[in-house]
Design a binder for these strands. Sequence first.
DNA 1: CATGAATGAGGCTTCATTCAT
DNA 2: TATGAATGAAGCCTCATTCAT
Lengths: 196, 196, 196, 196
Amino acid sequence: MPRLVDHDARRREVAEVAARLIAQVGVERVTVRELAKAAGYSTAIVSHYFADKRQLLLFTYQAAAQAAQARVDAVLKPAPDDLIGSIEALLPLDEERHREWQVWLSFWGMAIGDPEFAAEQRRRVLDTRKRIEKVLRAMAANGKLPADSDFDLIARELLTMINGLAVQAGFDPADWPAERQRKVLRQFVAPMGVKD
Amino acid sequence: MPRLVDHDARRREVAEVAARLIAQVGVERVTVRELAKAAGYSTAIVSHYFADKRQLLLFTYQAAAQAAQARVDAVLKPAPDDLIGSIEALLPLDEERHREWQVWLSFWGMAIGDPEFAAEQRRRVLDTRKRIEKVLRAMAANGKLPADSDFDLIARELLTMINGLAVQAGFDPADWPAERQRKVLRQFVAPMGVKD
Amino acid sequence: MPRLVDHDARRREVAEVAARLIAQVGVERVTVRELAKAAGYSTAIVSHYFADKRQLLLFTYQAAAQAAQARVDAVLKPAPDDLIGSIEALLPLDEERHREWQVWLSFWGMAIGDPEFAAEQRRRVLDTRKRIEKVLRAMAANGKLPADSDFDLIARELLTMINGLAVQAGFDPADWPAERQRKVLRQFVAPMGVKD
Amino acid sequence: MPRLVDHDARRREVAEVAARLIAQVGVERVTVRELAKAAGYSTAIVSHYFADKRQLLLFTYQAAAQAAQARVDAVLKPAPDDLIGSIEALLPLDEERHREWQVWLSFWGMAIGDPEFAAEQRRRVLDTRKRIEKVLRAMAANGKLPADSDFDLIARELLTMINGLAVQAGFDPADWPAERQRKVLRQFVAPMGVKD
DNA sequence: CATGAATGAGGCTTCATTCAT
DNA sequence: TATGAATGAAGCCTCATTCAT
């Protein structure tokens, strides 16, 4: 009987290596050879677990998105109205999340001129916005936000800020230490009329 | 007597074509051949006017940045404290500026893993922020803003918003018509205590 | 006690599947993976039952040759001088034999540049010619053919015709229905002075 | 001004090298690298002059077909009813034509499973048959053949013989010296009632 | 100044084969 | 006996760059 391998686990493993590489050199400069070397396999490993290099990248993108979501969910599970917490789970406040944003930024570049990745990006933005909106509604239910707020608009503003912060911190982390990011975040949230 | 050619004009011309191509297919998928064809020159055009493909791209980046700056300057010259106007000169409110942001987004992808382009990006962000700060100070001088405002912080917030809006509008222009962008912009600016 | 497997039967089974595949896609495009899938085994099937992919193909070639011979023998057993019958047993008159010729044609292509397969092909031609010659001598013995005929030459002519027909019918079966093949066959045989 | 090159001549040159290689190792084992080496160019030469390796092979096939036709035409121009001559122009009677048939045989193998090459093969067969038929009609016009002959059928028989001879001579040239091929040819033509 | 020809490096992918289980 | 995992070699192709003209 042959050695059996958890196919999905191996895919995630490869995708994880890919993400690390992307953060370092950019999606478009990730080569199968480099990836294989970094993962400790031969170049054929990619074709073994993915139909295509493209499929690997798509999977990597989605895996990264899921990881980010999971982080947010972990915050919201005990406190479904923890707006600040769920946003901070997304911001590049530490090394790990900084690296994650490097990956997003790189994928954005790829999405220009690649309709499928652009669509994926749109999907993710929409999804994140809906989650933020849900948090806002939970806040309203708890009296932390006026019930007649324009939840969609506020969610858009918040996501706008998140993306904007991430872009800047992504390219200039030294100029955007966690404290400064949090300060801007508070500044944005303050005028929303949030009550504690 | 050799035919004289305006070297710099030719460089700008090529960069303009490059920018158009980048917006369509992404920086990393722009090939010298495609560029030459689009520009109506031979493939040797790059080596002729630029040391390198890389230099061409860098020049393209800088040229695009200058064009954006010029647009802002045109607004500020008659009205140095026109905050909304100068910001709107940057947002992807119409087809042309949308295309310009596609170029930025694409360059961001390239900047991941390319220190020189990342530095260029940092430079540009800093520069833009300084310009916004200058507008804010002009506003303060005209009594439109409290004199003790944290100009740096506000400029950061505004640029954060600009980048955030551009990312989202860049990938989903249908979801971000000019009016919606302006609405978010006003929403951001309102709590700043701007007086007219 | 290990499960006993009829090694040879398994080899023939695999070769049969290989022949089917060859007729569809050509020898050179038959992959072990595809073959394994079609046969319902794992990719290691080849190494198990054959030293090599090459040996598998050689075996397939020989098995196909034997099948054709068996068909001829079945005709000649009851009637050793049935020239027309034995030739028709070789011609691509129906779907099955058409498929068989696809296999031969494909192997011919492989034989170019492959001395071993070329030798195999020569062997088969020689063998078939000898069998035809034997039929001719049987005919002579039965008074159906002048005893002083040049049996070798006639056999060569007949095999020439068989191969020629098969090539054309192989690539254009619609243009070579059984009837037309038989017509040409009769036309060739007629001047030989065959008596019934 | 750049060095100009006769594009078509270069294509024919490359195709000629390809044909030589095909006769040696078989179409499917011709690699771009080997071809480039044999032609004295870099591997990029193929993509330079052909869209594809496949296109190169198709071109090679067609170029070889044209060369064969030209040889036949050269015979028929001064003597449009020279049946034997035009057929001999096709048979593998010398080294050059033997090599040419190696190429055909190899392409046949490729045509199995490749509809486009199979169609090309059908086209060529049909074309050659029509040319033979034309010769037959010229013969009839000159009283060398009964006017009511079944020209189509005779042409089919002759082409059948040509192909059959070529296959056998192709794989066993030692067994098929020119004289033997001619002998079979005469044997075939004799019963047709040709008058000189 | 400008070009088309030609290159060499390197990318992705496919495939027969080997190996531990 | 039989398997799925994994490999390394090799294939085709693309591309930025160089060079003679």
